[in-house]
Design a protein around this nucleic acid. Structure first.
Lengths: 195, 195
DNA sequence: CCGATTCTTGACCGACCGGTCAAGTCATCC
DNA sequence: GGATGACTTGACCGGTCGGTCAAGAATCGG
């Protein structure tokens, strides 16, 4: 899998299969304790299959991470694109994030782990900075509109992301509560904190 | 180091030295990539020293985690013990947590990693449940006193912990901002969110 | 000075891990 | 049906890891 490689439809599916299964195993057992041998044998294929589609175990992980970040951002953007009111945009963003994580619970652990190792952290940080920039923009708009109290927009945006990620991990990921209810509480808390 | 072992003062110091140095290395390079050989050679001692004081690498990690949790809780309790007003207790707890993490930056990463592996997560969770229970108590008191709006106390408490942990990681750990300023913003956000 | 106990050393071990590769299979197109 | 390139196999390799242990050094009460 050095450089790009031409993939037939069948090949693309194998790739997806590997990424999905590996993500699940990483989430369950951790990245390091889950060996490549374990992944391929769980899928009933030889080890060569893995290295046909990926350069290394690290690269696979990075690719999983990247896909996840893109997908999450797409879900957020899709929902707020038509909303002019900045406060409502924040609310919709919170709700979209919660439902997305509820549908991709495996990725909660992966994001968390990625932050703890230097070779994965930069990619993760890049994604978080994008999310932060989005939030900051809406907060600034809200301040201008007078709907949000004056304050450092970056810190406020971080606080919102903190509420989201923590509630996702504790209530949705660990306890399986409904994303709608959790989102209601998160929105109420955050909008109160902004006003 | 099977069972307890009688430790002389010199021995206790070695133990602390090992725990502190290992924690720093784990925080910097991650738990798995940091080998026992690396730890002992960084300290200039033989590998037998490690296994004289600890049963295993895992046990060392658990002990670091346990000590850290106890120390953090002690710092929180110490500060709020004389404060009767529940809302002020929450504020003081937030401030104490921020300054504690500012003084123990290494442990931010360790807590984060611990949540991603099943063998460490239970211990971490136990500590977080204690912190949550503390917060829930204050929130309930605040609701009774009429200073906090009605709502599920558990969710509100989680939201507070989320703000703390995220701001600690992003602003104090990563960017090295002053814990006092960050705490000011966190307090303002959280108290707004509760009211 | 002696024996007992605490502490230290570092060569060594079996297990496992990520990654390679020569060989072979399968699908497809001419 | 043969040739081409996509895919698959699994034995194998070098290296590292957590952990062991026989041997010795340091400390200390008596």
């Amino acid at each position: 899998m050095t450089e790009k490689r031409q993939l037939t439809p069948r090949g693309k599916e194998r790739r997806h299969q590997l990424m999905a299964y590996a993500a699940a195993r990483f989430a369950e057992g951790g990245f390091h304790p889950t060996s490549v041998a374990e992944i391929v044998s769980g899928l009933g294929v030889g080890k060569g299959v893995f290295y046909w589609y990926f350069d290394s175990k690290d690269q696979l992980f990075l690719e999983i991470l990247k896909d996840a970040q893109q997908d999450l951002r797409r879900a957020q953007q899709h929902v707020i694109i038509d909303e002019p009111d900045p406060v409502r945009r924040i609310e919709l963003g919170i709700r979209a994030s919660m439902t997305w994580f509820a549908e991709h619970r495996d990725l909660v652990n992966l994001f968390q782990f990625a932050a703890t190792e230097e070779r994965f952290a930069p990619l993760l940080r890049r994604g978080q900075e994008v999310a932060l920039a989005d939030a900051v923009k809406h907060v600034k708009d809200g301040i201008v509109a007078g709907d949000i109290r004056d304050g450092e927009p970056e810190v406020l945006a971080h606080a919102i992301l903190g509420v989201i990620s923590h509630l996702v991990r504790e209530l949705i990921h660990d306890r399986g509560e409904s994303p709608e209810e959790v989102a209601d509480a998160a929105v109420a808390f955050c909008l109160g904190g902004l006003r």
